[in-house]
Design a protein around this nucleic acid. Structure first.
Lengths: 210, 210
DNA sequence: ATAGGTCTGTGCCTTTGGTTACTGTAAAGC
DNA sequence: GCTTTACAGTAACCAAAGGCACAGACCTAT
């Protein structure tokens, strides 16, 4: 456990901070597909992602979804932090994209460490920074790109995050993430298949070269 | 000057922090329309907005623009902070929407104050929080709403920010902010006029009831 | 007053993406 | 085996938004 944390965070965190994390944190193993946090939840712990990937998405009133970004090893969810600090409800939903191991740290420690550890402060800032940038990318994507390109980007990101160039999703699932309809995704995927960029199968997609 | 800062920030900042801000900060007056910060700029100061409003926008490779959000009195630009901390270039453009008064604080103070003043830490966090939320709203808007609704939201926000229910913009300017074309905006505005929600004039729009 | 530029209105057409509806087929349950 | 359900493919149609072209109104400068 300690070795695991050290491996991931020793470049960011001071030794005593790592000790404190181990002391107060709760380690959770979450299987792929499980919802870690949902819209409206009150949050009392901050998640540090030790392994795996988490997808973060937004939902509107009608239940339409949109993938915002993925969290990867060593990252944390700033939107969650913001909710913690403001004691407001979660604005987003987080789902384990792969099996994931998460260290949950109680919110109260957050402020304490902020004053105490420079490494923590920097980490928190860097997280915010990264999250803001990811969101800007998301905005760019939906504002400036057409669906063809967004789909290709999505597939690329997915193979990167899952580290598997077979994408084990149905067309419907992809459609949810990109906030469009199944038919449209099927159409575009077919087009990509004709361009020899991938091969379609039932329940999975084999990526050749995007 | 001191009274002005106190009026805006005394609920957030400790007295000695306010003194320091006055000591090291540079006060700038920016006329409406002027670009305060542009994409690619290196940033060495953090802006605290004393009065007026600033619009923050994103641009893609082809020069297409999109309004992200407005900053108002007492706020600061977290994206800028993030760039400061990471010593990276600005990802966004900031333009004075109205005449504005800004206190520029050198970046180096940022970290120093972060360790020293709880009020500053909280302020910085709250800013990040607010900016993240604004960005989420922006995402919602472009992902889930159609242009009719986005235009109405835009006009509402604009009269709120400028505190003037005459909107002094051309259709082309609105089109840039919403990343669409002039013709489309003219069409939708006409529709709103027919619905008695506003009256169109040359170079300005009179809002009745949105 | 005339000329040139800017702003707005509008008709027509295209593109992108979304909807409906139906088909075939693979998997899962019995 | 048969039935049911989930998944994918496709055609036809529709809607929202964007592009083009042009006209008229207004504004400014000479």
């Amino acid at each position: 456990m300690k070795e695991e944390l050290l491996g991931i965070f020793s470049s960011h965190f001071e030794q005593p901070l790592i000790d404190e994390i181990i002391e107060v944190g709760k380690c959770m193993e979450v299987p792929a597909g499980e919802t870690i946090m949902d819209i409206g939840n009150y949050i009392r712990s901050i998640p540090l992602l030790l392994s795996g990937a988490i997808k973060v998405l937004r939902e509107d009133d009608e239940g339409d979804e949109l993938l915002l970004y993925y969290l990867e090893q060593g990252e944390t969810c700033s939107v969650t932090m913001a909710c913690c600090m403001g004691h407001t409800q979660s604005e987003i939903r987080a789902i384990a994209e792969t099996d994931a191991k998460i260290m949950m740290v109680p919110v109260q420690k957050m402020e304490e460490w902020m004053a105490k550890y420079k490494g923590w402060r920097n980490y928190v800032f860097e997280s915010y920074h990264n999250r803001l940038n990811e969101l800007l990318q998301t905005v760019d994507s939906i504002a400036f790109k057409n669906l063809d390109q967004r789909l290709v980007d999505y597939l690329k990101k997915k193979i990167e995050v899952t580290n598997d160039n077979q994408i084990r999703s149905t067309h419907q699932e992809i459609a949810y993430d990109l906030h469009t309809s199944r038919v449209v995704i099927s159409r575009l995927l077919k087009k990509l298949e004709k361009m020899k960029k991938l091969v379609l199968h039932r329940n999975y997609i084999q990526i050749l070269d995007l």
